[in-house]
């Protein structure tokens, strides 16, 4: 490469960076063909693909109850919900692909254990009430996290999030409805509901990620306007919502320390076990191995089907070419 070429490339990057910074400053959208810093691309690819993996792995815990759902209406709603999650995974993989990483690569990374997904899905779904608690708490936390992402600076991600958030809010309502029915049901059903809330409360608060002082990726992400609010800010907002909603359910939050702090204007919660969070994230949660094995199995068992579809497509294309010639 000649010196002139290097200079041209540097000029190009400098011009691109200026446009990029201006767009971010004006709160406008970055689109796939725009110039973007390598770190922005890398960070977004990581975030969007992790989000996609979470949707796909997240299908498993709830699918576990499809065959046992206690009424036909609930069975239909649950099937539709898990189907939505497959759809969310598809939009998100597509959004991530616009940054240059193919879906196959992301799937390989997940199966090889190189990519992460939300650690909440490594907890077991033990009773029907867990389906309600997941909808209410886990999807509720996801919505708090995701609504601000509708304004993320990267266009394809923000647009995918708009549709996902609409469906997630429906999921949260169906979870709340399941718990409400159980809370007003027989004593056994009510106990089942309280037990599920007890088990899912702390893990759902930890979905917002580590406390701000311990969150290395957050600051850059906020400068780039991918992330709009800090982990602790969102967590506090979520706790405030749950405090009101649990009253309607007539159940208790398993947290004696919940209070509104007048000074900071924020909801405070009791201590969370961040060691547990780290353990689960490091692969030592109750269901990590099981979730990964199921995904690997589905992917490998399906290889011959995908090969057949590709071979058929190639054969049809060859036929058309022959006809055209």
């Amino acid at each position: 490469m000649t010196a002139t070429a290097i200079e041209t490339r540097a000029d190009h990057d400098a011009a691109g960076e200026k446009v990029f910074n201006d767009l971010i400053a004006q709160d406008m959208r970055i689109e796939p063909r725009d110039w973007m810093p390598a770190d922005y691309r890398k960070s977004l690819t990581r975030q969007i693909s992790q989000h996609a993996h979470s949707e796909i792995i997240g299908m498993q815990p709830e699918a576990n109850w499809i065959t046992r759902a206690p009424s036909l209406k609930r069975k239909a709603v649950l099937m539709a919900k898990v189907q939505d999650e497959a759809g969310h995974g598809l939009y998100l993989y597509s959004a991530a692909e616009t940054l240059g990483t193919p879906r196959d690569q992301m799937t390989e990374d997940l199966i090889a254990g190189k990519a992460r997904y939300s650690s909440i899905f490594n907890y077991p779904v033990l009773t029907w009430a867990d389906i309600g608690a997941i909808g209410w708490l886990v999807d509720g936390a996801a919505i708090c996290n995701q609504v601000p992402l509708c304004r993320a600076s990267y266009g394809p991600y923000g647009r995918a999030m708009v549709r996902i958030c609409k469906e997630e809010s429906f999921h949260q309502r169906q979870g709340f409805e399941i718990l409400l029915e159980l809370a007003n049901g027989t004593p056994e059903q009510r106990a089942m509901a309280q037990d599920a809330v007890n088990r899912w409360y702390a893990p759902s608060l930890m979905m917002f990620g580590p406390p701000d002082e311990d969150s290395p990726n957050s600051q850059k992400s906020m400068e780039w306007k991918i992330k709009r609010f800090s982990n602790d800010e969102l967590r506090s907002r979520f706790v405030g919502m749950m405090v009101e909603q649990i009253k309607v359910l007539g159940l208790d939050l398993p947290d004696k320390d919940v209070r509104f702090d007048e000074e900071s204007g924020r909801w405070e919660h009791g201590p969370l076990d961040w060691n547990e969070f780290k353990e689960v994230l490091a692969g030592r949660g109750p269901c990590n191995a099981q979730r990964m094995e199921r995904r690997r199995e589905a992917h490998e068992d399906g290889a011959w089907v995908r090969d057949a579809a590709s071979a058929y497509a190639a054969r049809q294309a060859a036929k058309h070419t022959t006809k055209a010639a």
Partner: peptide, 13 residues
């Protein structure tokens, strides 16, 4: 219903 989360590709789920 058993296939949901086990299909050969996401489009089939």
């Amino acid at each position: 219903g058993w296939w949901i989360s086990r299909a050969p590709e996401l489009e089939e789920d």
